[in-house]
Simulated scan of single mutants.
Amino acid sequence: MANSDERIQVASAFILQSPPGEINDVLNDVRVIVNDDDILEDGLLPALREYNLAQFILADVPDADHQTIVSDVARIQDSGEEEERFLDPRSKTSFRFDHLRLATSDPRSEEPDPAAEPFRAALESAALSYLAAHYIDGVAAIFSSQPPSHFTVQIVSNKYNPTNFWSGRWRSQYYIDFAESKMIQGKILVNVHYYEQGNVQLETSHDLSIPIPPAIANASPNAAVNKIFALIETEETRLQTSLNESYHEMSEKAFKGLRRALPLTRQKIDWDKVTGYKLGAELTASKGAFVLAS
């Protein structure tokens, strides 16, 4: 029998592969593997933390009416505290985050970089408008970094529909450099899980590089940010169209090729009555019956 460390290792692997919105179901299942609630929480915390940061898990911002993204970019480096803190740039608040219960605590005000904040705030306003136009329940977070002309835009949108056995998550991240490379380096990740009478999971990622034209790089913040999101919109629309075409092709070709054809009677077999079938008589009576070679 595997020891507790081996069981934690196996359970952690399952955690890291959890489909969108199904982490609680996976946790309940891995309890059977670990079979020891005393070590379950501490043993799985590293995997839960890794999963939450990679998946852009959402957190309710303390004393605010919006959510923010918990990610490695949001983590405050060298906070001087034993427990790590995460930043919500929109409310200028940092907080501690419980990776098991997905709860925030201990809010604290954070002073933004005065050199970067005007441009960051303009990007945030444009991002919220972009979300309202394209993502029903999307959340965005915009972070500044050194030098002040560098920004990171993160977007996540989740759709969970357990009644119809599917869930999905869209994540996109863009690193914007207005001064040096004058480029937008982006990555989009899509994960869809469909599990009605089966288990199909699609994971895809797309890397992109978008040059920032001089007219945008040298414009004022309010003039530049809308054009930045117009460039992002073009790339995300192109990817969405490509995914839709791929889904249609899979539905019409790949998935149909996987389906099992009906027998010659053109009727499904009732497996509860299979022992009562007279195979020879059934085949002879049906259209297009064939003769077995001796």
Rank of each mutant, 00 (worst) to 15 (best):
F95V: 01
F119H: 14
G80H: 04
S94F: 01
F178C: 04
V10R: 12
V156F: 09
D106W: 07
E117G: 06
S242L: 12
E236W: 10
R120K: 00
H99L: 02
P114G: 00
L87E: 00
T163C: 11
I8S: 04
Q154R: 03
A230F: 02
P214E: 03
P107S: 02
V190Q: 11
L27N: 02
I8G: 03
G21D: 05
L100K: 06
F165W: 09
R238Q: 09
E236R: 09
E41K: 13
L40V: 06
D177L: 00
K92L: 09
N191A: 11
V225S: 00
A47V: 04
E203A: 07
F151Y: 12
T284Y: 10
E82V: 11
I69Y: 07
A121D: 05
I8N: 05
Q17W: 14
S149F: 10
S94V: 02
N222I: 07
A127R: 04
G276H: 12
K253W: 05
I57N: 15
V30N: 01
A223I: 14
D36S: 11
T93Y: 01
P46G: 10
I8C: 08
V200G: 09
R85Y: 00
F229N: 05
T241D: 15
L131V: 08
P114N: 02
E110R: 06
F178T: 03
L202I: 12
K182G: 03
I232W: 01
D38Y: 11
I8W: 07
V139K: 04
L258E: 08
R85H: 01
S209F: 13
A74T: 00
